[in-house]
């Protein structure tokens, strides 16, 4: 039985380790995936801000393609499989929070508003496509692994338990909220990832900021706002003694990992909190080769954290460490607000 997969643009490149590690762990937990053919971008949080109907039509094209592809074959996973296998919606897995939300939202609003449904389908007709709301059920990868595959199967495949590794589980915003179909244990304090990491043997931090914002697109629009949000998360994880932070979203990983250095420079702090995808940790627990899991591609080095539990990465495999920036460098121009913030 196959699941349809909508990987999303981030997974193709800047969060390639997420996709690599997902494909690497699939066979260990009996998850069969097939990509939606010729999928397009979901528009993230940007397209919808420019124009509404084109944004919903852009997203609906993916749903229409998924519907078309799933109905052409007999062995795609459908909702309620195992209990009643006839006529349920086809399951579509989205591992990125923004894609997951955009796809769910479009399906939900097309079902709720007949006018939107009609207009989006008129637009789709220009490309020879049609989508009936409710025929595709959009679910996040974590939800599928915890609730369909089951934690028992996750536990069984473990050969190198993460015993002694303190992990802060981080969900971000758009997966547990707004949760149209009430799939998550709680919109503000879900526990799915906590339970999954426990099944891998890790010591899970009861992380109070687990669904707080990573800054989203603010790193581009107003960096000081984003840096403060990133600082809160990294600071809290460090205070709780976490060795690393596990995330389920490419955007969260990008903001917390890639902009951590910028944030440190802005606040004059020295946080070094590695940010890994939960699938990478699953791969580590399954004893897979670290390079195949995309480890070493993160900018904040995760090797010291993994070395703590005896997982070593050969030096040749790992990318060279970044040269630290000199503190007493040439004076650089600073914005007025920046000056105050960085020295308080």
């Amino acid at each position: 039985m196959k699941y349809l997969l909508y990987p999303g643009c981030s997974m193709e490149r800047f969060s390639r380790p997420y996709k690599d590690s997902l494909l690497a762990i699939c066979q260990h937990i009996g998850l069969e995936l097939e990509e939606v053919d010729d999928w397009n971008c979901c528009g993230a949080t940007e397209y919808i801000a420019v124009s509404l109907l084109p944004a919903y039509s852009l997203i609906a094209r993916n749903l229409a393609l998924a519907q078309q592809q799933a109905s052409s074959g007999p062995d795609y996973h459908r909702a309620g499989d195992g209990r009643n296998s006839r006529g349920g919606a086809y399951t579509l897995i989205a591992p990125c929070s923004a894609c997951y939300l955009n796809l769910s939202k479009t399906d939900h609003y097309m079902g709720e508003s007949p006018i939107l449904n009609e207009k989006v389908n008129q637009a789709l007709a220009a490309g020879g496509l049609h989508y009936t709301p409710g025929t595709v059920e959009i679910r996040h990868l974590l939800d599928i692994i915890v609730n369909e595959i089951g934690l028992e199967a996750v536990r069984k495949a473990v050969v190198r338990p993460l015993t002694g590794l303190r992990v802060a589980p981080y969900y971000g915003c758009m997966t547990p909220r707004p949760d149209y179909k009430k799939r998550w244990s709680n919109p503000e304090y879900p526990t799915e990832l906590d339970r999954l990491l426990k099944a891998l043997g890790a010591e899970v931090v009861d992380f109070p900021l687990k669904t707080h914002c990573c800054g989203g697109h603010m790193t581009q629009i107003s960096p000081p706002v984003a840096y403060e949000l990133i600082r809160r998360l990294v600071h809290a994880a460090a205070q709780y003694g976490a060795d690393l932070l596990a995330t389920i979203c490419p955007m969260c990983q990008l903001n917390l990992d890639v902009y951590q250095g910028e944030m440190n420079r802005y606040f004059d702090t020295t946080y070094r909190m590695p940010i890994l995808f939960f699938t990478q940790l699953m791969g580590v627990a399954y004893g897979l080769e670290l390079k195949a899991l995309g480890l070493g591609q993160e900018l904040v080095d995760a090797r010291p954290a993994l070395a703590k539990i005896g997982v070593e990465m050969p030096a040749a495999e790992a990318a060279p460490a970044r040269r630290p920036r000199k503190k007493e460098g040439l004076p650089m121009p600073r914005m007025p607000g920046e000056e105050e913030m960085s020295h308080d």
Binding site: D38, S51, P54, S57, A123, A125, A126
Partner: peptide, 20 residues
């Protein structure tokens, strides 16, 4: 990276923009 059926997507988006 460009998707295979860019013309299809462009037609959909153009129609959506007209409707809007």
């Amino acid at each position: 990276r460009r998707i295979k059926h860019m013309d299809q997507l462009k037609a959909i988006l153009a129609r959506a923009a007209e409707l809007e």
